[in-house]
């Protein structure tokens, strides 16, 4: 009976916590334990693959919301949200013109938690804005200045990738909004100098007098759409780019971006 009492008293949250923290499993996973001492706090930062993106100590002013606006972190988190919801949406979406639209309707009408689509779409919009604001802040604090010139360049490419990710995703619901936004957007590619069939210089690229090389089936826009209009191939190309190509490149560059933040001295501040 008294043993039972002991057992019960041991079941208090605090003791239970202690017991868990002493277990081999816990210690094998969380090497450091609860970071209650400065040393442990530092070891946590060093020992965790995710947390070691950050330095062990940061400047006070550097983490003030007033200074950073938290926009870079928000952008990264939105990227993760979009990856997660996007992965889930891929279970119900078929990138063919027969099914793309009705699959989206089904996400709205019958798929439980079809709200994933809303989170994905609004998250994408939010990410574009947060990227802009991030760059705005970086400029206003002059944080692109040496030694961070290269990382600013990587950031510019990430901005472009964000816009392209959003742009390619815009087509996938295959409704009027999607098709015509992409038509308007992709039509600009046909005016690419030399590489677009309505671009300046394209009609100079001929073999002899009258064998033109750049036509609507061999220009930059075709490379983007896989056809002369926004059709089935365009849907597939955008899908592949949206789900595989661009995220891979963006992920790669993000790794570079984060690494360089550390290498270039963390969050910027006055020298």
């Amino acid at each position: 009976m008294s043993q039972l009492k002991d057992l019960l008293s041991n079941l208090s949250p605090a003791k239970l916590g202690e017991a868990i923290q002493k277990s081999q499993i816990y210690r094998s996973v969380f090497r450091v334990g609860v970071p209650v001492s400065d040393r442990k706090r530092m070891l946590v930062m060093l020992g965790n693959v995710f947390l070691h993106l950050h330095p062990v100590k940061v400047r006070k002013s550097g983490i003030r919301l007033r200074f950073t606006w938290c926009m870079g972190g928000i952008t990264f988190f939105l990227f993760l949200v979009l990856t997660f919801t996007g992965l889930l949406l891929m279970f119900y979406y078929r990138p063919t013109i027969e099914y793309a639209y009705v699959d989206i309707i089904d996400l709205r009408e019958q798929v439980p938690l079809g709200i994933m689509r809303e989170i994905h779409r609004w998250g994408a919009h939010a990410m574009v804005i947060s990227v802009w604001l991030h760059m705005f802040r970086v400029f206003m604090t002059g944080s692109y200045k040496p030694p961070r010139e290269f990382n600013w360049g990587v950031g510019v490419i990430l901005l472009v990738l964000t816009l392209l990710l959003s742009f390619t995703g815009y087509l996938l619901p295959w409704d009027q909004l999607a098709m015509w936004a992409i038509t308007v957007g992709s039509n600009m590619a046909r005016a690419t100098p030399f590489a677009g069939y309505e671009g300046p210089g394209a009609n100079l690229l001929t073999l002899g007098e009258n064998i033109p090389l750049i036509s609507s089936t061999s220009d930059a826009r075709f490379a983007l759409l896989g056809g002369t209009r926004v059709g089935e191939m365009a849907l597939l190309r955008f899908y592949v780019l949206h789900c595989v190509g661009l995220p891979l490149v963006a992920g790669f560059l993000m790794a570079v971006h984060f690494w360089r933040i550390r290498r270039d001295g963390g969050i910027s501040g006055p020298l």
Binding site: S37, R39, P55, R59, P146, P147, R262, G265, L271
Partner: peptide
């Protein structure tokens, strides 16, 4: 940035001696 070199050198996170702070 005082403890970090501006040319991108890795700042060595100095673990402060525990005696300083309890």
């Amino acid at each position: 940035m005082s403890s970090e070199t501006p040319n991108g050198g890795t700042p060595k996170p100095a673990i402060p001696p525990p005696a300083k702070k309890d």
